[in-house]
């Protein structure tokens, strides 16, 4: 059981996760389209899952301690989640600002907004990104 769990964890390391994707209208009639891209990310860490891994990987009193820790962490971090929790929810707030830096005219088309992650078990890079074309 313990080794199976650790094997599953090892196999899921380095995976990609896609939560949400959206494509806007594409206008190819206004001029040359130059690709622009903005990616904002924050480290995600699922402490509850980490404690559960600790419980599975240990025995006796240590396993019991990890179990208690897992339960406490679950209680103090309640709520819906997409991917692993992050410690700063403002990481994606400057998306529009960075898009306008990439394309100062603001003439963007073919906007693809994506919510994704690169995961390694309880640790992940939680990403909010936009790919688009700037009309030059």
């Amino acid at each position: 059981m313990r080794w199976t769990a650790l094997l599953v964890l090892a196999l899921t390391a380095g995976c990609a996760r896609l939560d949400h994707v959206q494509i806007g209208s594409i206008d190819q009639s206004q001029g040359e389209l130059v690709p622009v891209s903005v990616r904002l990310s924050e480290t995600g860490f699922d402490a509850t899952a980490a404690a559960e891994i600790g419980r599975i990987a240990s025995r006796g009193k240590t396993a019991e301690n990890f179990k208690q820790l897992r339960d406490i962490l679950a209680l103090i971090n309640m709520g819906p989640r997409t991917g692993n929790p992050v410690f700063d929810d403002a990481y994606a707030q400057r998306l529009q600002e960075y898009l306008l830096v990439e394309c100062p005219s603001g003439r963007l088309t073919g906007i693809r907004a994506i919510r994704e992650a690169k995961t390694a078990g309880p640790v992940s890079g939680e990403i909010v990104g936009v790919d688009a074309y700037c009309i030059r």
């Binding site: 962490l73 971090n77 819906p80 997409t82 992050v86």
Partner: peptide, 26 residues
């Protein structure tokens, strides 16, 4: 310390971006 470190978590579920039609000059 563990509770303090992990006690303030957030989750960004999604970010929607509308079209950028008729964006005025800066």
């Amino acid at each position: 310390p563990l509770m303090l470190l992990t006690g303030c978590t957030h989750s960004v579920h999604m970010q929607h971006v509308s079209d950028f039609d008729d964006v005025p000059a800066a």
